[in-house]
């Protein structure tokens, strides 16, 4: 066979060496599930494609609110302190006795949380995101949709306009449905 024996020799040693595990397999313990982490990453990334009326003021944080009771809540720790267009991301876990979302730039309505779109008190410029089927049709801005193992979202552009939020064309491109 017309190949370099030296090269193959090096590779054979490397393959064998690589076949010896250096440490035992260590299971990663995580508080949040992969699905939750993915959804929070999507929530954060979706927010990067949205402009709020007060975006020009870097001293104003972008506050993400989620029900403290929701299973997804611990995964929100990942985005605390991150930057979106010079504005700091903050996370507010809303206690069960509270239904006020005043001061929230973005609010996530988890299915197992205590907050609901109808019952919550919202600012006029809140980016509302939810998991319930029909959330966008009922006036929410972003609705997460699961098809098989895939996680996607649909978007209600009229609701976004009503909240005076500017949604990037790129985000609309990625939405699987536009209400």
């Amino acid at each position: 066979m017309p190949y370099s024996h030296t090269l193959l020799g090096v590779l054979a040693v490397a393959v064998l060496a690589a076949g010896v595990p250096l440490r035992g397999a260590a299971a990663q313990s995580a508080h949040a599930t992969r699905e939750d982490k993915l959804r929070v990453a999507m929530i954060y990334n979706i927010a990067r494609f949205v402009r709020w009326p007060n975006d020009g003021d870097p001293s104003q944080p972008i506050v993400f609110c989620v029900s403290e009771r929701a299973r997804i809540a611990p995964a929100f720790r990942e985005i605390e302190g991150k930057n979106i267009r010079m504005r700091r991301a903050r996370v507010r876990l809303v206690p069960e006795e509270d239904a006020s979302l005043i001061g929230c730039s973005a609010a996530h309505f988890a299915r197992d949380g205590h907050l609901s779109l109808e019952g919550a008190r919202l600012d006029s410029h809140t980016l509302t995101m939810g998991e319930a089927p029909g959330f966008a049709r009922m006036g929410g801005i972003v609705e997460f949709v699961r098809v098989g193992k895939q996680q996607r979202f649909s978007i209600n552009v009229a609701a976004a306009r009503e909240a005076d939020l500017k949604v990037s064309a790129r985000l609309i491109d990625l939405a699987i449905r536009i209400e």
Binding site: L38, V40, M42, Q150
Partner: peptide, 23 residues
């Protein structure tokens, strides 16, 4: 994920959407 401990948060949205929720 898990092996490198890289966070999903730093990925682009379209890349995120290529991940399924279990694998």
């Amino acid at each position: 994920e898990g092996w490198s401990e890289e966070s999903f948060v730093d990925m682009d949205l379209d890349a995120l959407m290529q991940l399924d929720i279990t694998s």
